[in-house]
Each structure stands twice: as structure tokens, then as C-alpha cells.
Write a protein that binds this DNA or RNA. Structure first.
Length: 634
RNA sequence: GCUACUGUGGCUCAGGGGUAGAGCAGCUCACUCGUAAUGAGCAGGCCGUCAGUUCGAAUCUGACCAGUAGCUCCA
């Protein structure tokens, strides 16, 4: 007998019982919806026999792990369908991802979108057949024989064989795949499946290797859940900042400058308002501001290491027979500023901000609205400090980030990016700096994940990722620890002891870039910006022509009060004007007719709260100012 | 950059070998209107660019450019 702890309740079972049977003993409902199990904290199959006392949790589709097992099994069903329909296909990998699953195939004739419905039909058949999945293990040699002709599987087996492991397999009827699991008990558990996309993807994510055909899909235990999911994606599309940017007249992109955005008057108000806010916050945190040239000579970029490590992404030119490069980053210019005068330990930490326009030659396929452009304004800053100030400064910077993100109601996740292959500096230095970053955020009680090998070439970094409307995350803030550039530029300060010392520095951006951040908040607010950011804060809607004079006088008064106000003098019905103002997401609509004109009032309508009734002009100004001051999100 | 797809008036889109169509927006006129679309009229397009096939190309083919999804890369 074994004792099994089921969420705090202990029960006895016969030794060797499977997790599935335990689930059945609890109830048929749970048994039918069970996807996998957690035994002593480790996620595993429902078919796993339990040999000793343990804590057991049955995981359904409602849990993260349950979903993963569900989607992973669906990806095997997809592969089985492709295997039946397109014999000779070579299979690579097919994992569950955050939002569904995919499977990569190598086919003589790659699939096209028209093939998906046929594959979906075959998937439905396999589900209907309700084929049980079975797990077994083989030693590497036998595994290779089993997967004869499957080049990608051979490569995977060789890798695992190197670690001396047996290879685990799952088979479902006529299809067997090399897989670690866990998986559902049978194909019939999958109910609603939709293949969502077909694209190319490199084998092993390596651009030098062969491009395979990747089919994406998602599945749910209920048809209604699938429909809800598709509905959600439609809604997300409406928030796309590229669509809203066009509709609201914020920015545009033209063939004449791929990746180089044009800002239109309304977008410019947003950008400038963000910049004002940024300056205000940084003043509070004792930053000074500088501006360094957009183009500097090759010698400087060689000294900083950019010429060697970043040249392919830089725009270069020749001036008077000397190579120059347009800056892809602001740091080298910042180094020159620091080095231009002697510093005392009393100056440190020295916080130097720069809204710097940088240009990077990004690959054409990587461009994406304002999220990924070729020229952008970084909200950059470099903080120079002594070694023992590092902890404090990193924590102070994270507090600044928290203040800024919470102003917009944004949430983030943190990644710690470690030493890349292409790097400068010693391994010891890197490890020391990585530990400092780790300690600082751990001390603040923040969680983070490690992103192995993704650091900047000069140092490790903490990256702050914010999600867009489709759940894709974009790196906005980053804190990069750098002891290389101070070395290369021979930066110094005079210490308490009268000796010269080398400072350390961080590079950091909060917003990432004004452009990217604008894209993120456009989606976050679905274009309905808080009052303080709205390009147009109120629109005056006179009811008839005889109210035009009053409307114009009102606009002057509101202008004078510092509000951004438009006046709709077209001879249209009020309902029409309101509809237009709603579509443009203008926060306040001020309707004025006979009643308001007589009383010196405005009838206020809010885009979300609706009709708020008539108030005096002064009262409206006061209300609006208070809302702007508080940066309230509504 | 790679794979696949897309490219028609300011916007959204229909059409598709015989030289272009709708709705919205714009302009004009009438209506002077009370909280999400008043009506009528007018104007607006070398159908992404360049080649090729054809008597004839927006339509077929190719190359290029740009965009979209994903991969790679990245703030």
C-alpha cells in the first residue's frame, strides 16, 4: 500500500496504482477532465504508476501544466494527421507553447494554407477514433532503428544518448513519436481544434539551418471555449496600434522610409507629453540631461567595441575621407561627456539622461509598426557610480521603473539576460555583475526568469517585458550593468583617498523608446488615452448655428486654461457629432445649445461614463485639471 | 535576411484578359437639429513598381518594392 496526499487529504491505495485510477476513485468528472498529474511537485503522466508515498495533484485544462499536456497531445495528433495524409514527411519537434501548439515538418512539397482544412478533417477523425496513447522507453541504439529515416529524430536521439539516457516514446495507433511527455490518455479527450497559421521556422532556431514548415494550432475541451478564444483574438486586433495609429491620426509609415515612422500632429502631442512626463520623473530622481551628436567617427565606435560587434546594424558614411557612423546607441557619446572633465567621488552617483535619436538597420522582416523600427528616441540614461553604490542604484532604478509603469497601469515580467557568446570582458567579471543584478531584485522581492546568453555584448542586463494586446511581450525597460566601457574610455574619479579609481556604470531605459512605448500604451488603452495624454481632451459640439459664437468663445476660454480642445462647427446633427467624437476616443464632449448659452454652462458627456449633465465652465475646467494632475486612468 | 501570403480612390473592401465599382470620409446645396450615422448632388483611381506573354493586362508570368504572420535578430 502507498499513502497518497491529495491536497492535504491522505488516502491509502494499492502500490503501483496509476494517477488516472486515483483520479477515477475521486470522481468520474475529474477522471474525464484530467490531463496530467503532479507527483511530489513533478509534472508527469496520468499513466505513471505510483510506487511510494507521495503528494499527488490531478491537473486539468484549468491549470497551466494541464493545458500544456492537452496542447502537446494535440500537436501529436496533428503530426499523425500529416503522417497519414502526406507519407514521406520528416518530423522534427512539436511542443505546446503559451497559446496552443505547433509542429515542424520537413516535406518534399511544403504545405500551404489551403491544406489546413483537410488536415483538420483528419485530426477530427483521429479524435473520433479515440486512440489510446502509450508510453515506452528504448535504449538509444534501438531508438535510432525505430526512427530510421527520420533525420531530425536521429539528431535528437544522438543528443539524448550523449547524456546516457533511455529514450522515451509515445505512440498512438499508427503514429509513434519520440517525446518526454506528459500526454493525455487518449486522442478522444481533445474536443475543439483549430489550425491557426502556417509559417516557416528554422530547424533548431538556427538561421543557417534548413527552414521547415511550421503549423500552429490551438485546442480546447469545449467548442465554446475555442469560439471565445477566436473572439478574443478579433478584439485584440481592434486594439492593434498600427490600426489605431492610422484611425486616430497618430503616425504613419511610408514606402519611402521603411521602419522610419512619421509622427502626425496628434501623435506628436502624445510623444511630447510623454517626454515632458519623462523629464519630470527624472528630475525628481536627480538626473541631469544631455544631448550627444547623432553621428560620430569610426575611431570612437572602434573604441567602444560597436564597430566590431554591431557594425552590421549601423548606418555608416564617409565624410572628408573618414568613416562615420550614425549612432545606434548613445553610450559612447555619454562616455565622452563624462571623460571631458575630472570627477570626484562626491559627484557620484552621477545620473545622466539623454533622449537620444538612434538608428539601427534592423532586418526588413523584423519591422513591426512602432514596436520595431529603424530609428527611435531612446529614453536613455547612464549612471556612473562606485562599486559599493551599485546595489542602491539598481534598486533605485527599479523603483523609478515601478513608478513610471504604474502611472500607466502596466504590468511587467523581468528577465535576467546573461553572457552571450559574442562578448567583451572576463567570465569572472560577468558572473560578478550577474550576481549583483540578481541580489538587487531578489532583495526587492521581485521575481525573474533567466534568459541565458542574451545579455548585451558589454554586460548582463535586467529586461522588463510588457505584453501587447495579443499577449506578445515587448522589452521596454532594461538595466544593463557595464564595467567594460568605463575601462575602454579610461573613465576615472578621484576617491576619498586622493587616488584615481575606475567608476562602474549602468545603461538604462524605462520606456525602451518613446516609439515602442507609445505603441504599447496605444494598445493598452485601446486608443482611449487618459485625459493627461489625450491629443484632444475635449470637443465642443454646438447644436445649431446660432450657438457657434458661444462655442468659439468657450474654446478660447478652455485653450487659455491649458486644455487641448476642438470645436465641431459642421452643420450635422448632435448624434452624428457625438458618434464621431466617440470613434476618435475624445474623453470629453461638451454639448452647447440654448440652455447652456443662457446659463454660461456646458453639458458634459464622457466617452465612457456618458451624459454627466450641465456644469459651469469654471467647474468643468477645475474637474479636467484635477483629472490631468492626478493622471487618472478612466 | 528566410518561409508563406497580401498590395484596387484618404479609409474599409468587391471585381477580375476587352481599358474600373460600393460604403465611409471629402466638397456643394438643403435642413438648424439636444447625446453613437438627415437627405440630395459633385469630385476623386496610370488597380504597388518594372519587365514579359497577348491583337489587347488592373486581371496571366517573372523580378523588384512595401506590408502581414512566423522564424532569426532586437529598445
Amino acid at each position: 500500500m502507498v499513502k497518497i496526499d491529495l491536497k492535504g487529504q491522505e488516502k491509502e491505495f494499492e502500490k503501483g496504482i496509476t494517477a488516472a485510477e486515483v483520479a477515477k476513485s475521486i470522481g468520474m468528472g475529474l477522471y474525464k477532465s484530467a490531463c496530467c498529474a503532479r507527483v511530489n511537485g513533478r509534472v508527469c503522466d496520468l499513466r505513471t504508476p505510483i510506487e511510494e508515498d507521495c503528494a499527488l495533484e490531478i491537473l486539468t485544462f484549468d491549470s497551466e501544466e494541464g493545458k500544456k499536456a492537452y496542447w502537446h497531445t494535440t500537436s501529436h495528433i496533428l503530426a499523425q494527421a500529416v503522417c497519414r495524409l502526406y507519407p514521406g514527411t520528416k518530423f522534427s519537434i512539436g511542443p505546446a507553447i503559451d497559446n496552443g501548439f505547433y509542429y515542424d515538418f520537413d516535406m518534399e512539397k511544403p504545405l500551404s494554407a489551403e491544406d489546413l482544412p483537410g488536415i483538420e478533417e483528419e485530426i477530427k477523425k483521429i479524435i473520433k477514433e479515440n486512440i489510446p496513447l502509450e508510453r515506452f522507453e528504448l535504449p538509444p541504439q534501438e531508438a535510432k532503428e525505430k526512427m530510421a529515416g527520420q533525420d531530425y529524430k536521429q539528431e535528437l536521439i544522438d543528443e539524448h544518448a550523449g547524456q546516457g539516457e533511455n529514450i522515451s516514446f509515445y505512440s498512438q495507433g499508427d503514429f509513434t513519436d519520440l517525446c518526454a511527455g506528459p500526454h493525455l490518455m487518449s486522442t478522444g479527450m481533445v474536443k475543439a481544434v483549430k489550425l491557426t497559421a502556417i509559417t516557416g521556422a528554422y530547424w533548431r532556431g538556427d538561421a543557417t539551418k534548413k527552414m521547415l514548415t511550421r503549423v500552429y494550432g490551438i485546442s480546447f475541451p469545449k467548442q465554446s471555449m475555442l469560439e471565445e478564444h477566436l473572439q478574443m483574438l478579433e478584439e485584440a486586433k481592434k486594439r492593434d496600434h498600427r490600426k489605431l495609429g492610422k484611425e486616430l491620426g497618430l503616425f504613419m509609415l511610408k514606402d519611402e522610409g521603411p521602419g522610419f515612422p512619421f509622427f502626425l500632429p496628434k501623435g506628436m502631442v502624445l510623444k511630447n507629453t510623454l517626454m515632458d512626463y519623462w523629464r519630470q520623473v527624472h528630475k525628481k530622481y536627480n538626473y541631469v540631461e544631455i544631448s550627444t551628436p547623432i553621428m560620430l567617427n569610426r575611431q570612437l565606435w572602434e573604441r567602444s567595441g560597436h564597430w566590431d560587434h554591431y557594425k552590421d546594424n549601423m548606418y555608416t558614411t564617409v565624410i572628408d575621407e573618414t568613416d562615420f557612423a550614425v549612432k545606434p546607441m548613445n553610450c559612447p557619446g555619454g562616455m565622452l561627456v563624462y571623460a571631458s572633465e575630472p570627477h570626484s567621488y562626491r559627484d557620484l552617483p552621477l545620473r545622466v539622461g539623454e533622449i537620444g535619436l538612434v538608428h539601427r538597420h534592423e532586418l526588413s522582416g523584423a519591422l513591426h509598426g512602432l514596436f520595431r523600427v529603424r530609428c527611435f528616441n531612446q529614453d536613455d540614461a547612464h549612471v556612473f557610480m562606485t562599486r559599493d553604490q551599485m546595489q542602491d542604484i539598481i534598486q533605485e532604478t527599479v523603483r523609478l521603473f515601478d513608478e513610471v509603469y504604474s502611472t500607466f497601469g502596466l504590468t511587467y515580467t523581468i528577465e535576467l539576460s546573461t553572457m552571450p557568446e559574442d562578448h567583451i570582458g572576463t567570465v569572472e567579471e560577468w558572473e560578478k555583475n550577474q550576481d549583483i543584478l540578481k541580489e538587487a531584485i531578489t532583495a526587492m522581492g521581485k521575481e525573474f526568469v533567466i534568459n541565458e546568453g542574451d545579455g548585451a555584448f558589454y554586460g548582463p542586463k535586467l529586461d522588463f517585458h510588457i505584453a501587447d494586446s495579443l499577449g506578445r511581450t515587448w522589452q521596454c525597460g532594461t538595466i544593463q550593468l557595464d564595467s567594460q566601457l568605463p575601462e575602454r574610455f579610461e573613465l576615472e574619479y578621484v576617491g576619498e583617498d586622493g587616488e584615481r579609481h575606475r567608476p562602474v556604470m549602468i545603461h538604462r531605459v524605462v520606456l525602451g523608446s518613446f516609439e515602442r512605448f507609445l505603441g504599447v500604451i496605444t494598445e493598452h488603452f485601446a486608443g482611449a488615452f487618459p485625459l493627461w495624454l489625450s491629443p484632444v481632451q475635449a470637443v465642443i459640439l454646438p447644436i445649431a448655428e446660432r450657438h457657434h459664437e458661444y462655442a468659439k468663445a468657450l474654446q478660447k476660454q478652455l485653450d487659455a486654461a491649458g486644455l487641448r480642445v476642438e470645436c465641431d462647427l459642421r452643420s450635422e446633427k448632435t448624434g452624428y457629432k457625438i458618434r464621431e467624437a466617440q470613434i476618435k476616443k475624445i474623453p470629453y464632449m461638451l454639448v452647447v445649445g440654448d440652455k447652456e448659452q443662457e446659463a454660461g454652462e456646458v453639458s458634459v458627456r464622457h466617452r465612457k461614463d456618458g451624459d454627466l449633465g450641465a456644469v459651469s465652465i469654471g467647474a468643468f475646467i477645475e474637474k479636467a485639471r484635477a483629472e490631468i494632475e492626478s493622471k487618472e486612468i478612466k
